[in-house]
């Protein structure tokens, strides 16, 4: 699941407060276990529930790294600390892989949302060790098979249709990102590895809903990755895309550089020659 944000969202906090503190974590866990189970049953090709697969050494190494780097928020045992960080039981290795490889976790400072950070502080081995430890806390989605994260094997046309219905309304048709409520946002999906796009769909990080394999099959997800990749490969034939954010930057350009250029010419035209 997502790193629970220490959000300023009053509604949400009061709602949580009305119930027993453990209820939410418990329910989330139940839900995820259910999801994981169904997931494991229906799509065995990608998601062997990963808990038992790792050797005990790796899990132990992961536990040590976890206690050193993650426990402040997620608790010594990974079961979360109320209002600080959610329980990680059942979030699966895919979630750890996504959150840590994109630099979102560990979060540098508390905020509405964990931003993507280019400078990842952990090695691949360390991340997979932590992932193994977290996976051992409860069954959850595993890191996807390369077969399904390789965009070149997908059908971009079909992926585009799925993308426009399921993704574009938050992430923008060009994948340039968009705003959510109260300071949250859907990040850019351009320049993101296929594996991480897959893991995001699978685990539903932060505000993003989960797209499990019954909703979008692994093939569907691969098609989406193919579409995103091919769209980037196609470049911007017309020139500078102005951030791919549509009419607002275009209007801004017309009101500044565009008309500025023509007014400069008009000033030159009206000025007496030396």
């Amino acid at each position: 699941m997502t790193p629970l944000t220490t959000t300023d969202e009053g509604r949400r906090l009061t709602r949580i407060d009305r119930r027993h503190p453990a209820a939410l974590a418990l329910l989330l866990m139940l839900g995820l276990i259910l999801a994981g189970t169904v997931f494991a049953a229906v799509a065995p090709k990608t998601a062997e529930a990963s808990a038992p697969a790792q050797s005990a050494d790796v899990v132990e190494e992961g536990r040590e790294l976890f206690v050193a780097n993650c426990a402040t928020c997620h608790g010594e045992n990974g079961l979360g600390i109320k209002d600080v960080g959610p329980s990680l039981a059942g979030v699966g290795a895919a979630s750890v892989d996504f959150q840590m490889e994109t630099g979102r976790m560990p979060m540098a400072k508390p905020g509405v949302q964990a931003p993507r950070v280019e400078d990842v502080k952990f090695s691949d081995e360390q991340i997979s060790a932590i992932a193994a430890y977290v996976a051992s806390l409860g069954a959850g989605p595993a890191i996807p098979d390369e077969e399904y994260t390789d965009g070149s094997k997908g059908d971009a046309g079909k992926g585009g249709e799925i993308f426009r219905v399921n993704c574009a309304m938050c992430h923008n048709s060009a994948g340039a990102g968009g705003a959510l409520t109260r300071g949250k946002y859907a990040p850019e999906v351009t320049g993101v590895e296929g594996k991480h796009i897959y893991e995001a769909m699978l685990t539903g990080p932060q505000s993003m809903p989960v797209f499990n394999d019954q909703n979008l099959t692994p093939e569907d997800k691969r098609d989406v990755i193919a579409y995103i990749e091919q769209q980037q490969e196609a470049g911007n034939p017309g020139g500078n895309p102005l951030g791919s954010l549509g009419p607002v930057p275009e209007g801004l350009f017309a009101w500044t550089i565009g008309i500025g250029l023509l007014i400069t010419a008009a000033v030159w035209l009206g000025k007496k020659s030396a």
């Binding site: 309304m169 048709s173 990102g177 968009g178 009419p247 607002v248 275009e250």
Partner: peptide
């Protein structure tokens, strides 16, 4: 639909 749905300026 798409995020950032605006008309021309």
């Amino acid at each position: 639909t798409t995020a950032g749905a605006q008309p021309d300026w």
